[in-house]
């Protein structure tokens, strides 16, 4: 039964952790951090698919998540559309936007691709700051509560359950996708675009699909974040948020299914742990990134896999 739906040990472990963890939460603040971790994990799964599997760097996903969030919020507050439907419209809009920009952008490679996505991201963040009549400018705007068919999400536990289910569901679909012929096509693009092309794969078509998918996931997570926190500001769409997301993915481990979650959770919790260091927070944060990139450039998940590999080897 489980096998047929490909619910493997990893997904069961993840679910178990997500169920057990709340028992250790002492107050709402713990929930808050956990929910933000889950939402960041979601964005990072999409970004990992783009960067780690298809090999296309994006330094603009924070901006895409932020813009998606703004669209959903503005539809709700200015036009009175229900949250679920406004997220749906935001997803469609962002998917079309991503598809249009994917064609010229994903033709670029390496550094050029990084700079182009960065450029798009910064332009988005500037527009959100400047168009204050629509977005509230740099002060941001408050967001109505999240209701689905009359059922209101007002407790942290409700949000936690929603985000946890969403994450498990996404990672399940993602695992299936990566292990399907579609996933093989993505990995072949990272391996050699020429090889992929030579067996009949329309490389730019698949790059566009993954890019759109990753933007869609970012939009969903970005909108949910806005509804959860009851507030949205251009800092969600800032350059530093985009960078933060990329760091999460690389830190966790590019091309490792669970790397994105590991990276997202660590980098969401880390700044909270560092608040006690006050002035030294940024300094330590930077130092940790440098440290990880020097000593484990393939990410934390790879260290774990290496350890597992060694244990198995010694057992034999």
């Amino acid at each position: 039964m489980l096998k047929r739906y490909n619910i493997n040990r990893d997904i069961l472990t993840l679910s178990a952790i997500l169920i057990i963890v709340p028992f250790f939460f002492q107050n709402d603040f713990y929930y808050e951090i956990a929910i933000v971790s889950l939402l960041n994990s979601l964005i990072c799964i999409g970004l990992n698919m783009l960067m780690g599997y298809a090999g296309q760097v994006s330094l603009g996903h924070g901006a895409f998540a932020g813009l998606g969030g703004y669209i959903a919020v503005i539809l709700g507050s200015k036009y009175g559309i229900t949250p679920l439907f406004s997220i749906f419209i935001a997803v469609i809009t962002m998917a079309i936007f991503a598809f249009i920009i994917s064609k010229p952008i994903l033709r670029l490679k390496g550094h050029y691709l990084a700079m182009a996505t960065l450029g798009v991201g910064i332009i988005i963040s500037i527009v959100l700051n400047v168009e204050d009549e629509l977005t509230g400018g740099s002060d941001g705007m408050s967001v109505d509560s999240f209701t689905v068919f009359g059922y209101e999400f007002n407790s942290s536990l409700q949000w936690y359950v929603l985000c946890a289910i969403l994450l498990v569901f996404t990672i399940w679909m993602f695992t299936n996708l990566i292990n399907s012929p579609f996933g093989r096509v993505l990995r072949s693009i990272e391996g050699s675009e020429k090889a992929a092309n030579s067996v009949g794969i329309n490389v730019s078509h698949y790059k566009s699909i993954v890019f759109v998918l990753s933007v869609v996931i970012a939009t969903i997570a970005g909108s949910l974040y806005a509804f959860f926190s009851g507030f949205i500001s251009p800092s969600e769409a800032s350059f530093s948020h985009s960078i933060e997301l990329v760091v999460m993915v690389v830190l966790g481990g590019l091309g490792r299914i669970y790397g994105a979650i590991i990276g997202a959770v660590i980098l969401t919790i880390l700044p909270q742990l560092l608040t006690s260091f006050e002035d030294y927070q940024t300094l330590i944060y930077g130092a940790i990134i440098i440290f990880v990139m020097i000593f484990m450039p393939k990410g934390i998940a790879s260290v774990y896999e290496d350890l597992k590999g060694r244990l198995f080897a010694s057992n034999k």
């Binding site: 072949s188 391996g191 992929a196």
Partner: peptide, 13 residues
């Protein structure tokens, strides 16, 4: 279909 002078194999697969 073709092959390449400078090997094009997906080494990550």
């Amino acid at each position: 279909c073709r092959t390449f002078q400078n090997l094009e194999i997906c080494e990550n697969l």
